[in-house]
Amino acid sequence: MKAKPGQFIILMIGEKGERIPLTISDFDARKGTVSCAFHEVGKTTKKLGLLNEGDYVETVTGPLGNPSEIKNYGKVLCVGGSVMIAPLLLQVKTMREAGNSVTTVLGARIKDVIMLEDEAKAMSEKVYVATDDGSKGYQGLDFLKDLLKKEKFDHCVAMGPVVMMKTVSEITKPYGIPTVVTLTPIMIDGMGMCGVCRVTVGGKMQFGCIDGPEFNGHKVDFDGLIQRQRIFLPEERLNSVLWEIGGCACGRQ
């Protein structure tokens, strides 16, 4: 087992399943395990949520993708959104171990989705919470602008929904803070074969799986990425609904 922060796995739940990428949020080299957090949004993740400890999935391949560049940058700002808070905390942990002072921002749509706040507090110099509706902490990420006016950061890591990473990148850009974002485009093989995860970075086509998944947030074409992530939305929704209607029949494998 040789997982590193920043990498992902490809998981296939059953013989007829799709291959989905999940960012690694923790690993135990001695036990040979990796942990991943996921949101139950589609059929695969909903089925995954039904599995119990000791159950099997068809395939897990990985670790895939390039590991993060963890080193002593100085003062690091780590911003995580919703389910990607889990892998963000792995960044926080390793960044701190590398000697950085880390400020962590936990963001989500509503307060119920904020997770791992205590863990974040235990590992960070300072923790801020923000929600889209203001139900907890700051409303939105605008407060970051004030924060950056007051404090100087040497590096920024953003992991979360594309819109959040886009906002963070726009906020850090005027301050010239190198900002690393983790992209999660649609993937199939996850090893460079299909090109469905292509994304434009600095005007060049890059593959999320083998050139990333981390990229310079100031150069990513986020709007293009958002559009590509939605390509199969109708099919994904249909498949999820169909499965829920027929739930029990083909549910657990």
Binding site: K16, R19, K43, I188, C194
Partner: peptide
């Protein structure tokens, strides 16, 4: 080239052959 509906032949064939997208939604890959 990144618009929806534009596939590399590899993506297209991987979906159809390896992931059996022709049998969607019995198979999950669309």
């Amino acid at each position: 080239e990144n618009f929806g509906g534009i596939y590399s032949a590899n993506e297209f064939l991987i979906r159809v052959n390896l992931m059996k997208a022709y049998a969607f939604p019995e198979y999950d890959t669309p």
